[in-house]
Design a protein around this nucleic acid. Structure first.
Lengths: 232, 232
DNA sequence: GTCTATAGCAAGATAGAC
DNA sequence: GTCTATCTTGCTATAGAC
């Protein structure tokens, strides 16, 4: 009761130490089971039992089974940034930076390849708050786009001035495309996804460089106009 | 037992007349309810009750609720082709044909916009046989790609000879992108999707034309090489 | 505020009788 | 082929302990 580790009515609001520990434990257990048996085959009852808590307690921390995935999404994003940090601090070449960040993203996701399939399924649902395009996900999405802004702005790349502010979001979109491919990639170790990255980056790099060319300026503007028109 | 309508061990294998009737009735009922109330809100119990059959009977014909969607996918494909037929018979300009086929595809899907969201969610699951990329869906996918082959081959477009055989599949991929956008499109009447089509078609048309240019040949080849490498 | 235990609902899916 | 009964599981609700 009067245990020193338990504050009486502490000013600390967001994460009660004990609660945060339980929350993390439930999340870790869930992720492990998802990886071991897959998403659908892992029941909330099993997660609770394995974590040594009551079912109601799991729901106390995570509103639904899908909310566990949302945390996975946020955590992966943070890991991605951390995994790319060293390269971004050292390297200035745009293509090298982009290539490194794309590979780092896949590196983070790889241990969850089976499970990530379900993650993407959930994410594709537009009405779901878990969709990376939804308002509810705007925070992790913005963080992801910021990572690609860093790729660009920390580089020596010369980019059309009109294209520059839009490019980070376009790079993020391209990354979403890579992830979609990766999810469906059945090659050993998802080697084809790595080939996709290595092949696409030089093309993107060249396209970005060409965007400044006089002759291609009208096309650049047309593309940009289309993008602005259809953006939500 | 000796009823004339019930063949003893008939050579006819696939569709028993009566069974096919029940099957179709269940499917029609399900589609109607999906459109009226949405996918999640339509229970298998409701479908069975509305169709006047037992739940188990619905499962006898459709292995799961998701399998009802697969039929939707196949049916939509047929409707798409039919909806585009008149235009393809009349028009020879590549851009016009492509634009018409893309709009026709969205026309077919529009009455099911709410429901199609769930369809796409299901389709994004790579392990599901319902994914448009899966082996199980290869038949409808091939039919869809064939439609875009028709768009190209019935046109007067001059295309790089190396690109030509790959282009139909690339156009189908672009169409998948349009559908993905449409699913997330919350604008009234999905007007933005229509803008996307109208804006993207001229760009695609121009890119296809440019593929023959001497200077761009290396890039064309590089893109083609990448595509061939990463294809499953 | 954190957690347990238990009961119960709704709905997807299955088993076995007819 | 078709039905009824049953199972499983996501999720909720309640009541109470610390």
């Amino acid at each position: 009761m009067t245990d020193e580790t338990a504050p009486t009515t502490a000013a600390a609001e967001p994460p009660t130490p004990r609660g945060e520990q339980t929350r993390q434990h439930i999340l870790d257990t869930a992720m492990r089971l998802f990886r071991e048996r897959g998403y659908a085959q892992t029941t909330m009852r099993a997660i609770a039992k394995e974590a040594g808590v009551a079912v109601g307690n799991a729901y106390y921390y995570f509103g639904s089974k899908e909310h566990l995935i949302q945390r996975f999404y946020v955590d992966s994003q943070a890991e991605h940034r951390a995994g790319a940090a060293a390269l971004l601090a050292r390297e200035r070449d745009f293509a090298t930076r982009l290539r490194g960040v794309l590979h780092a993203g896949i590196d983070v996701l790889t241990p969850s390849h089976e499970f990530a399939a379900t993650f993407f399924k959930t994410a594709a649902e537009p009405t779901s708050p878990l969709s990376p395009f939804s308002a509810a996900s705007s925070e992790p999405r913005e963080a992801a786009i910021a990572l690609f802004r860093d790729v660009l702005e920390g580089s020596t790349a010369k980019v059309d001035e009109e294209l520059r502010p839009e490019l980070p979001e376009l790079l993020w979109l391209a990354y979403m495309g890579v992830v979609l491919y990766w999810v469906h990639d059945r090659s050993p170790g998802q080697a084809k996804t790595r080939q996709l990255i290595d092949g696409a980056v030089p093309l993107i790099d060249r396209a970005v460089g060409l965007s400044r060319l006089r002759v291609l300026r009208p096309i650049t503007r047309e593309v940009l106009h289309l993008i602005r028109t259809i953006r939500h």
